[in-house]
Design a binder for these strands. Structure first.
Length: 585
RNA sequence: GCCCCGGUAGCUCAGGGGAUAGAGCGUCCGCCUCCUAAGCGGAAGGUCGCAGGUUCAAAUCCUGCUCGGGGCACCA
């Protein structure tokens, strides 16, 4: 409808252009928007206000002229010039009726558009280090990323969802060491577990898995590992202490032995993350291994590209990338003094490969604490000859858990409520998915567990789902009374829906495609949540005030058509958010 | 010091160049003989952090300040 009106305005401008508008007005794109107040009609355009300055005429005169030149449309009942020079459009009943019919005809596909057709976009999200179970913060990333991906698909984009697996580096070594030390403990060795090692029951479970696979073949007397380390150093420098422990473990076990522990741990943690996300309705198309970048030569390729372009230099035995030439605050090391590549070198190689796979947009969804890293990755892309604008980053702010009014402490050490799985078990997947995207991604999120669980009016999940269930219930009632819905008859009598609540519900349904378009463009699933709440409110008001299953078949069928369309839109919207639409509650 | 995010009703937040700034919760007052009251209606409640600027028009854009959260590795 919005597009239809825009084309009418464009046509009017073309007519006006012939004699009254200067050539520069050719670039003028008309904007038609929903009005906030129904007294201003259904849609309005500000073209006259914007044109008036350009041609130095009174806005209201220009508006009147444009209104005169608008082509007739069966969907536009009245056009009015109002306020400082707005042109207001009042839709005909036929426009609203056609909208309702369109919902029912399009069904699950209602709201889809082709605005993004042909655009390949790679959405990378979560990408948590595989060193332990996902926590509640990752849950927000998962819910947000998956919903954005769904919105992009609904608007025609070619979407590829990816989880980048940091399966190499120091954190993995610490994981392996932690597991190995628990394994030694389980075999009767006395170990001093380092303070900065990974704690948590899952480490012991993985240790048990190591025993299952390799029996006691990886047992080394603990004294051999610990006695070589000066005890004083443990106190002073935990970091170098744990590095020394890793080196010792590697030395005693040999590279293969250490790799056995590490790979067992990696597989186990990754399987857990995969299951966790799958249960949450989040299924990335690809799990991209950081290790594979080394094996495939992608890192060499990226570094060569930088070197060929003269963007690398040597300093202090390390290789540096001239990131400052591309707006970063400092140059970045790509190859350390010790010859190892940095995480950053993997990262630009990864992003280069995203581009090499034909993606126009690289959408990274990152934690707010990663913002400092945007400039350097973008710098890397540009230095390699890729457009810096291809990288789009959305930061997700932190989540704070509350139980009632009380803030929950979320530290791994305290062992309190921290994992995504725990949260899902407590409040359910639907509430978790919806609560996570209730707020804008760049707003801190207060997640109240009690509210998410409450089966009451305060809980937006139930409020929206309840509207869906109520429609289903009406159709069940219909069957129980031995009646059937005649959709064709309903379509033919939509004009009987003259109640103000019916009009405003129809208007709300017509907005859905615009909401999807906007939410996708802004990467803002919370726009959709707010819309669904409003739609549910429109429906509940209607339900409360008007009986649907009435005597007269024509009116009954028409009303059922309207609530059927409402149910469809709620179902489609919830589906994009990964929330179920129950038939009864 | 530099960078990112936020400051809008008592609370949690939408709106991010347009007309009289919205929602939920909370408070107060109403509505079940009726398709699910997990619902609906009404009322009260605002210096859109502060100060300048741009514009026909600023909560919205720009600059400065301020308060709160986060980040500034040869870690990943």
């Amino acid at each position: 409808m919005k597009k239809h009106l825009e084309s009418l305005v464009s046509e009017a401008l073309v007519r006006l252009r012939d004699d009254e508008l200067p050539p520069e007005s050719l670039r003028f794109v008309p904007e038609v928007e929903r009005t906030r107040d129904s007294r201003h009609g259904d849609f309005a355009t500000n073209v006259a206000l914007r044109l008036a300055t350009l041609i130095d005429r009174k806005p209201r005169d220009v508006a009147a002229r444009v209104a005169e030149l608008l082509p007739a449309s069966k969907f536009v009942g009245r056009v009015a010039v109002a306020g400082p020079g707005f042109i207001n459009f009042f839709l005909t009943p036929a426009a609203l009726e056609a909208g309702v019919a369109e919902v029912v005809e399009a069904g699950e596909r209602y709201g889809e558009s082709d605005s993004g057709t042909g655009r390949h976009i790679l959405v990378e999200y979560v990408s948590a280090n595989p060193t332990g179970p996902l926590h509640v913060g990752h849950g927000r990333h998962a819910a947000y990323g998956a919903s954005v991906a769904n919105l992009l698909r609904a608007t025609g984009h070619q979407v590829h969802e990816e989880y980048y697996v940091n399966d190499t580096g120091r954190q993995m070594d610490i994981l392996a060491l932690s597991v190995w030390l628990r394994y030694l403990e389980a075999h009767g060795e006395k170990v001093e577990f380092p303070a900065n090692g990974y704690r948590g029951d899952y480490i012991r479970q993985i240790a048990a898995l190591v025993t299952e696979r390799y029996t006691d073949s990886l047992v080394i007397p603990a004294t051999m590992v610990f006695t070589e380390l000066a005890p004083a150093r443990r106190e002073e420098d935990q970091e170098s202490h744990i590095d020394a422990l890793i080196a010792a473990a590697r030395d005693k076990l040999g590279p293969e032995g250490f790799a056995r522990v590490l790979d067992t741990a990696l597989e186990s943690v990754l399987a857990d993350i995969r299951d966790d996300l799958a249960e949450f309705g989040v299924r990335p198309d690809q799990w991209y291994s950081e290790r594979s970048l080394e094996a495939s030569g992608a890192i060499d390729r990226a570094l060569a590209r930088l070197r060929d372009r003269g963007k690398l230099y040597e300093k202090g035995g390390a290789q540096w990338f001239r990131a400052t030439e591309y707006g970063d605050v400092k140059d970045r090391v790509v190859i350390r003094e010790n010859g190892k590549r940095t995480y950053f070198s993997s990262d630009i190689a990864y992003h280069l490969h995203k581009r090499e796979r034909g993606n126009e947009v690289l959408l990274d969804i990152l934690g707010a604490d990663h913002h400092g890293y945007i400039a350097r990755v973008r710098a890397g892309l540009e230095a390699m000859g890729e457009p810096g604008t291809s990288l789009e980053v959305r930061l997700v702010q932190f989540v704070t858990l509350f139980r009632g009014g009380e803030k929950l402490r979320m530290s791994t050490r305290s062992g309190e409520f921290v994992t995504l799985r725990d949260l899902r078990r407590e409040v359910g997947n639907d509430a978790a998915r919806l609560f996570y995207v209730l707020r804008s991604n760049d707003q801190h999120l207060d997640f109240d567990l009690e509210l998410a669980k409450s089966r009451s009016t305060e809980n937006p999940v139930y409020y929206i789902q309840y509207a869906h269930a109520r429609v289903c219930s009406v159709f069940r009632q219909l069957g129980e009374r031995g009646l059937e819905w005649d959709a064709g008859d309903g379509r033919a009598h939509l004009s009987e829906l003259e109640d103000a609540r019916e009009k405003s519900l129809m208007t709300a349904l017509g907005r859905y495609p615009e909401v999807i378009e906007l939410a996708a463009a802004n990467r803002a699933p919370h726009n959709l949540v707010h819309y669904l709440r409003e739609l549910a409110n429109e429906f509940h008001s209607y339900y409360n005030a008007v009986p649907f299953i009435v005597e007269r078949a024509e009116l009954r069928n028409a009303r059922l058509m309207l609530i059927c369309a409402s149910r469809q839109v709620i179902q489609n919207g919830l589906s994009l958010l990964g929330v179920s639409a129950p038939e009864s509650m």
